[in-house]
Simulated scan of single mutants.
Amino acid sequence: MARYTGPKNRICRKFGEPILGSGKNLGKNSNPPGQHGNSKKRKTASEYAIQLKEKQKAKYTYMVLEKQFRNTYVEASRLKGATGENLIKLLESRLDNAVYRMGISPTRPAARQLVSHKHVMVNGEVVNVPSYRLKPGDVIELKPKSKANTAVTSLIRPKNPKINWVDFNDKDLKGTYIAHPERENVPENIKEQLIVELYSK
Rank of each mutant, 00 (worst) to 15 (best):
D138T: 02
K162V: 06
K162L: 10
K191P: 00
S146R: 06
Y177A: 03
R157K: 15
V152M: 06
P161A: 04
K145E: 14
I195P: 00
K145F: 05
D167W: 10
E192C: 12
E192R: 11
K145Q: 11
D167V: 06
P144W: 11
N160I: 05
V139G: 02
K135D: 03
V166L: 01
K171S: 09
K145I: 03
E197C: 09
T176F: 04
V186D: 08
V166Q: 01
D138G: 03
R157A: 09
L194M: 14
K135R: 10
I140Y: 02
T176R: 15
E184N: 11
E197H: 10
A179C: 12
K135S: 09
K135T: 04
S146A: 12
T176K: 15
E188R: 04
R183A: 12
E141G: 02
D170W: 03
R183Y: 06
K143S: 15
F168W: 01
I140D: 01
K159W: 07
I190T: 02
E141H: 06
D170I: 14
N189G: 04
T150W: 02
N160D: 12
L173R: 15
K162P: 03
Q193M: 10
I190K: 00
R157Q: 14
K159R: 14
L155Q: 10
N185S: 07
K162G: 07
F168L: 01
E184V: 13
E197W: 12
K159Y: 04
E141K: 10
I190D: 01
A179K: 15
I163C: 14
P144A: 09
V166G: 00
L198K: 10
F168M: 03
P161G: 04
T153C: 02
F168R: 01
K143T: 15
E141Q: 15
D170K: 14
V166R: 04
L194F: 11
K145V: 05
N189Y: 08
I178F: 05
P158Y: 13
G175A: 01
K171H: 12
Y177Q: 00
S154M: 13
T153F: 05
S154G: 05
T150F: 08
L155T: 13
G175C: 00
Y177T: 00
K162I: 06
L194E: 12
K145S: 13
N164C: 09
P187F: 03
K174L: 10
E192L: 13
R157P: 02
D170C: 08
I140F: 07
L173V: 07
I190G: 01
I178V: 15
I140M: 05
N149P: 10
R157G: 07
E141I: 03
D138W: 07
N160T: 01
W165G: 02
D170L: 06
D172Q: 13
P181H: 05
W165V: 00
D167R: 14
N169T: 05
N185R: 09
I156G: 00
D167A: 14
Q193V: 09
D170Y: 08
L142H: 03
L142D: 01
A148W: 04
K162Y: 13
T153V: 11
K191G: 04
I178A: 08
V139N: 03
P187T: 05
A148V: 08
V139L: 06
V139T: 09
E192T: 15
S154H: 08
K171R: 07
E197P: 01
N149G: 09
R183Q: 02
